[in-house]
């Protein structure tokens, strides 16, 4: 299963990076969202995969019965999903507000912080 997941992860990363290299802010955001999934899948796969047995201890035992899925990457990813969602929401609102202020969704037009043809810093003392 791992090789196939590695291939899937490669496709996820390629698509998200391709979208992020665009100049349109909405496409970049879609890329960021997919990037989060790609990263989560990477963490998940590197903890090795087991089919269908969740890491839950049966009611009458004190340790899991036999092999279960690896709980550690799951715990890492679970919080990562929520945090990446929060940041996705933040980026979305940021993009939206930028669009409202600057009237463009093209990153080439967003030159407030780094304007074109910026003057030299003062040469005196």
């Amino acid at each position: 299963m791992e090789p196939i997941l590695a291939l899937t992860v490669a496709i996820f990363f390629s698509v998200s990076i391709y979208l992020m290299l665009s100049k349109h802010i909405i496409r970049i955001l879609l890329g960021v969202s997919i990037f989060g999934n790609a990263v989560n899948l990477t963490i998940f796969t590197s903890g090795r995969v087991v089919r269908e047995i969740p890491p839950i201890i049966p009611l009458d035992l004190s340790v899991p019965d036999g092999i279960t899925a690896n709980p550690l990457p799951q715990a890492l990813i679970l919080t990562a999903i929520v945090i990446s969602f929060s940041f996705f929401a933040f980026l979305l609102v940021l993009a939206f507000r930028t669009y409202q202020e600057l009237g463009t969704d093209d990153t080439d037009g967003m030159r407030v912080a780094e304007p074109k043809g910026e003057e030299l810093p003062p040469l005196g003392y």
């Binding site: 969740p54 839950i56 679970l78 919080t79 999903i81 929520v82």
Partner: peptide
């Protein structure tokens, strides 16, 4: 704590 679930999922 014992079955799938928890604060994050519930909150969402």
């Amino acid at each position: 704590h014992n079955e799938p679930g928890g604060g994050f999922i519930g909150g969402l």
